[in-house]
Computed example of a mutant assay.
Amino acid sequence: MLSTPISRRQFLKKSMQLGIGLVGLASLSGVYTRYVEPNWIDTNAIEVKIAHLPASFDQLRMVHFSDLHLGIHSNSEYLKHLMVKIQRLKPDLICFTGDLLDHSASYISEAVSLFSQLEAPLGQYAVIGNHDAFGNRKAVTKGLAKAGFQLLHNEHIELIRGQDRLYIAGIDDPWVGKPDIEQALLHIPSEACTILLAHEPDFADEYGQLPIDLQLSGHSHGGQVRVPLIGALYTPPYGSKYPNGLYQIANSRLQVYTTRGVGTTRLPVRFNCRPEISVITLTKA
């Protein structure tokens, strides 16, 4: 059966309705990507199996978060909620993998106030990110220390439970800083369980033959905007190969976990890529 032709007036009316609908959809999408998803925290629970994990550290719970990018686009209420959410998870230790500030060191007081709310029995540890290294290094270093975080600058700490040892190592930003992985791992026994904090995830390829079991990274933001069937529209240098989630490095004992981060940079938007708090439980393989 043939369809009935529509008049010019009907055509114009339907076209106008479609145009209004598309504009409305675009507006709603803009509101969602700017004001909803960037503030919609995903608490992501991950189990990581490690062959070298000592028995007394089995079921260790770590909260890993990254890329706060504190600056002009920050939402104070969101940040307060973020800190409360992290503390309520009651982790054994807390790890922050860089980019505390976006560009300006003028926000360091707010960062200190926020991070001072966090505490874990085995400590709070952090490394520098590329945005921190660009003119903010001194402020970030002092700020993290004031907030009770130990900055691991090409060094490591030893966690002790009975006769068992677990090592947390950290390096200066691998991309724009002065990283020294050999110094960071110095005197750690090769058979020990070692976790590395390094801002950019893709450097895991360079560390794959070293005695490291797990690398925690951020930097990529998971792409920040991910289009279905296409993926991330953009990932930064050294954040493209391992942009989001858990990966096993080929021919290596090293695994790398990349978090999507909790803040935004460049544009204050997220789509299909919610901000993430990672709750990592270590288990004996």
Results as ranks from 00 to 15, higher is better:
residue 129 G to I: 04
residue 182 E to L: 06
residue 275 P to E: 12
residue 252 S to I: 07
residue 183 Q to F: 08
residue 201 P to Y: 11
residue 47 E to N: 08
residue 54 P to E: 12
residue 10 Q to T: 13
residue 143 G to T: 06
residue 125 Y to V: 08
residue 204 A to G: 13
residue 57 F to K: 03
residue 277 I to D: 00
residue 177 G to H: 09
residue 177 G to F: 13
residue 34 R to E: 02
residue 49 K to A: 12
residue 229 L to V: 15
residue 256 V to E: 05
residue 89 L to I: 14
residue 73 H to F: 15
residue 177 G to D: 12
residue 100 L to P: 00
residue 41 I to M: 14
residue 141 T to C: 05
residue 204 A to W: 03
residue 34 R to N: 01
residue 131 H to P: 01
residue 95 C to V: 15
residue 175 W to A: 13
residue 231 G to K: 12
residue 187 H to I: 03
residue 253 R to Y: 06
residue 4 T to V: 09
residue 57 F to P: 03
residue 184 A to W: 10
residue 17 Q to S: 07
residue 164 D to F: 03
residue 130 N to D: 13
residue 115 F to M: 15
residue 154 N to R: 08
residue 103 H to T: 13
residue 149 F to G: 08
residue 77 E to N: 12
residue 183 Q to V: 11
residue 217 S to W: 04
residue 188 I to L: 06
residue 184 A to G: 11
residue 240 S to N: 08
residue 224 Q to Y: 11
residue 170 G to K: 02
residue 194 T to F: 11
residue 66 S to M: 02
residue 68 L to D: 07
residue 121 P to K: 10
residue 249 I to N: 00
residue 82 L to F: 10
residue 207 Y to T: 08
residue 186 L to K: 13
residue 208 G to I: 10
residue 17 Q to P: 00
residue 164 D to I: 03
residue 164 D to P: 04
residue 44 N to P: 00
residue 233 L to E: 07
residue 44 N to D: 12
residue 160 I to G: 03
residue 71 G to N: 04
residue 206 E to D: 15
residue 128 I to F: 14
residue 178 K to D: 13
residue 56 S to D: 11
residue 176 V to M: 11
residue 41 I to C: 04
residue 19 G to N: 06
residue 1 M to R: 12
residue 174 P to E: 04
residue 254 L to Y: 13
residue 252 S to K: 07
residue 116 S to D: 02
residue 12 L to K: 09
residue 25 L to H: 00
residue 229 L to A: 09
residue 148 G to T: 02
residue 196 L to V: 13
residue 114 L to T: 05
residue 258 T to K: 08
residue 136 N to L: 10
residue 165 R to D: 04
residue 236 P to H: 10
residue 101 L to G: 02
residue 205 D to N: 14
residue 145 A to V: 08
residue 19 G to Q: 00
residue 53 L to P: 06
